[in-house]
Each structure stands twice: as C-alpha cells, then as structure tokens.
C-alpha cells in the first residue's frame, strides 16, 4: 500500500515557540488515521501546516507523491487535500448552498457539483431544508455538518477533519462518527484530529498520540484503545 501523505520530521513554530517538534507519520490510501492528544499538543498546528496555512520550520511533507512544503494553501486544495478546520469556520453570511458551492470553488464540472450538493443534502437533510438560509443561523452541530459537507465538495483524496465532534450533543456526535465511517466505506482517506479519543480510536485504522509537539505513542486504533497509558490519560480511567 502506498502512502498518500508522508510527513517527516515536521517542525512548526510560532515566533520562537516550537509548537510541533519534529513529527513523522504517514496516511495510507483508504485509511482513517487519527491524531489524539491533550489541549495544546500541536494537532491543529499540524493540520494547518499540512494545508499550507502555516509555513513549517523544517521537515518534509509529501502528498500524492510530491513535496508540498511551500506550496500556497489554495494550490494544495487543488491537489486533493481538503481541510475542515477546528471551530467549523463556515462563512456565516453566505447561504448554506453558497458555502457548499465554495467548497467546489476549483471545480469546473457544473453538473457534478450539482450532484455532489444533492449528495450532501442526502447525507445531512437539514442542510437541504435550510439551503437558502444564512449559514450563521445554523446550530453548532449543523454548522459542523456544513463544514464537513463543504470539505467534501472538492472531492478530496485526503480529508482532514479537526475536531468534528467539538461541542456536539452525544446524538450529533454519533451521527458525525457514522458519517466518517460511511466516508471511509466509499474510499475516502481521512486524517482525523479528535479530543474524543474513544470515538476516534474506535474508527481509526491507526492512531498517534501527541504531547507537547511530539508523537509519543503510535499504533493501530484497537491497540491504542486498549493501551493502559492511553486509557489513563485520554479515556478517563485510572
């Protein structure tokens, strides 16, 4: 199996403070890989660097066979890497339909875009019911659905989701996790960042635990789920 994303010794700093201190991991085509870890571990920083919003201090990132360090964010999307950012970041004063269309900004196939919007409405019926409404009027969970639907609109090879369950009710959370599983079943490769380690590890093929800018533990989802230190630190057991 070829790796779709290869991250090697990635280092990222804000000013003099190094938030990511040399991490290495890969994401294979068709897999779900999760990054878990405490607040401030550097997970969001990692994703923002991969999608080109932050320039790394050092290290290499290869996506789909080519180096993408230094490539501007808007060109990285074109290569097939979509990023649903932490905190949703939908465009509040645009309608739901317009938000979805922006997800397909670089695509030219009007028919395909229309079909994909319909698919997003099937996945999340509430989006279809509110299509003409300003996205800022949606509830938090609905906004999360929109953010995920919007990221899918570019038909990405790799979908990066940053805390898709943040602030959601258990039912909404369940729904989002089911959707991620469905996406995997249709062949989408996913890099998932989650606070909810239980849910993330149950879904993931493999996972990495981050602590203050480093990967301290890696393994299959099932292994990490049963790892004693992980259970203590992230699953609230003692």
């Amino acid at each position: 199996m070829t790796a779709l994303l290869e991250v090697e010794n990635l280092r990222v700093a804000y000013g003099k403070i190094e938030a990511v201190k040399g991490i290495t991991f890969t994401v294979e085509t068709g897999r779900i890989v999760t990054l878990i870890g405490t607040n401030g571990a550097g997970k969001t920083t990692t994703l923002r660097t991969l999608s080109g919003l932050i320039e790394p201090l050092g290290g290499t990132v290869r996506f789909d066979g080519r180096s993408i360090v230094g490539t501007p964010a808007h060109e990285i999307v074109a290569l097939g890497l979509a990023h649903s950012p932490e905190g949703r970041h939908i465009f509040p004063r645009l309608t739901i339909a317009e938000n979805l269309q922006l997800g397909a900004f670089l695509r030219k196939d009007t028919d395909g875009i229309g079909q994909d919007i319909q698919r997003a409405y099937e996945l999340f019926p509430i989006l279809g019911e509110r299509a003409k409404q300003a996205a800022g009027t949606l509830s938090g969970g609905e906004q999360q659905m929109l953010a995920m639907g919007r990221a899918l609109m570019s038909r990405p090879k790799l979908l990066m989701l940053d805390e898709p369950s943040m602030g959601l009710s258990p039912i909404m959370m369940q729904k989002i996790m089911e959707t991620i599983a469905e996406l995997k079943a249709t062949g989408t490769t996913i890099l998932l960042v989650e606070q909810n380690a239980q849910a993330a590890l149950s879904l993931a093929d493999s996972g990495h635990v981050m602590e203050v800018g480093k990967i301290v533990l890696s393994g299959s989802g099932a292994d990490l789920l049963h790892d004693e230190s992980v259970r203590k630190a992230y699953l609230g057991e003692d």
């Binding site: 501007p72 808007h74 465009f91 645009l94 317009e98 900004f105 670089l106």
Partner: peptide, 20 residues
C-alpha cells in the same frame, strides 16, 4: 462569492482554493 468569502474568513477562503 470568493470576495465575500475572503472578507468573512480569509484563512478558510484559502482552504476553498481561493487565491486571496
């Protein structure tokens, strides 16, 4: 629409593929 997106949230606009 890309202008509106850039005005509302420039970083996320870049993630849509918009050259801000």
């Amino acid at each position: 629409r890309a202008m509106q997106a850039t005005a509302q949230d420039p970083d996320t606009a870049k993630l849509m593929g918009i050259n801000t």
